[in-house]
Amino acid sequence: MNPPKERADAARNRQAILEAARRLFAEEGAEAATMDRIAAAAGVAKGTLFHRFGSRAGLLYELIADGATGLMEAVRSGPPPLGPGAPAADRLLAYFDAMTCLIADDIELNVAYQALPPHPHREEFHAFWATHISSLLHELRPDLDAEVVGGLLLAPLGGELVPYLVRAGHKDRLREAVRQLVESVIRQSA
C-alpha cells in the first residue's frame, strides 16, 4: 500500500522548513538553529515543525536523510563515476569525494546530528555505505579485509578534524586529503 500523497501546502511548508533550517545551521551554527528560529525563518508556526518532524532530532534526521538519500540514489543509478559503469577505483574515489562534500557543505548540521542519540533508521544509511565501500574495495584489493578497511576509511569523516578544517576554511584541503587516503589504499599492490 502506498502512503497518502502529501498535500501541496504541506509539501511547501516542508520545503520551506528544510531550507530555513539548513540555512540557519550553515549561517549561525547548531546552537542558534532553535525550533523557534527555524519556524520564524520558514514562516510557519512552531507547532507545524513539531507536528511534521516530532522534535528537533526528527528535523535533523530529515535534513541528513535528504542528502544521504540523494547520494544513495546517485550511487545506485546515477551517472558514472559515482554511479554504475565506472571502474571500481573511480567509483570509490567519486563516492568519498561526494560524501566528503555532503558532510563538509553542511558541517554544522552534521555536528548537531552526531551529538544526538542514533535515529532508528540511521543504521540503514551506514549499512548502505559500508556495503558499497567494501564491495568496491573487495574488487580492487581482495587481499584486504574490505569491511574493516572500508570502515576505517569512512570513520575520519565523522571525527573532530573535519569540522575543525571546514570551519577554518580548508574544505578543499580536506577533500584532497581524503582523496589521498583512499588512493593510498587502492594503489597499493596486492
Rank of each mutant, 00 (worst) to 15 (best):
P117H: 10
F25I: 13
K46N: 12
L59T: 12
A33G: 07
A168Y: 00
E27I: 12
L152D: 08
M35N: 12
G43W: 06
F50M: 05
L59G: 11
D143L: 02
H138F: 07
R56F: 15
D172C: 11
R167N: 06
V148D: 15
A8G: 10
T48K: 03
T100C: 06
V149H: 14
D90S: 10
A74R: 11
L93D: 05
L181Y: 12
L165W: 01
G151H: 03
F25Y: 10
A146N: 08
A45E: 13
H138Y: 06
H132F: 12
N110C: 13
M35Q: 11
A10G: 12
H170N: 09
R14M: 00
A8R: 10
R167A: 02
Y61I: 05
L24I: 14
V111H: 02
H119E: 07
S77G: 11
E123N: 07
G151N: 05
L82R: 01
H51D: 00
L49Q: 08
A74Q: 13
E62M: 09
D172H: 12
E73T: 13
A11C: 06
N13D: 04
A104E: 09
V149M: 09
P156I: 09
E31T: 12
Y113L: 13
L102N: 15
F53D: 01
L165F: 01
P79G: 14
A20W: 06
A11W: 11
D90R: 05
L157S: 03
E160L: 01
P4M: 12
G58P: 15
D9P: 08
R56Y: 14
A45M: 08
V162W: 02
E108V: 11
A88E: 01
M72Y: 14
W129T: 13
L157E: 05
D106N: 15
A74H: 12
L174Q: 08
L140N: 02
A33F: 04
K46C: 08
F53W: 08
V182Q: 11
G169S: 05
L165V: 04
R179N: 06
S134Y: 09
A11I: 07
A88W: 02
G158S: 02
G70H: 15
D90I: 03
D97V: 04
P117E: 13
N110K: 10
Q15K: 07
K46A: 05
A26P: 13
P81N: 09
A65W: 11
S77D: 10
S189R: 08
G43R: 04
S135A: 09
L49D: 06
H170G: 08
G150V: 06
L109C: 15
Y61K: 13
L136S: 02
G47E: 04
L18P: 01
L24N: 07
A146Q: 09
A57G: 15
A127P: 07
P118C: 04
G151E: 06
L136Y: 03
S55H: 15
S189F: 03
Q15C: 00
I103F: 05
E160G: 00
L136G: 00
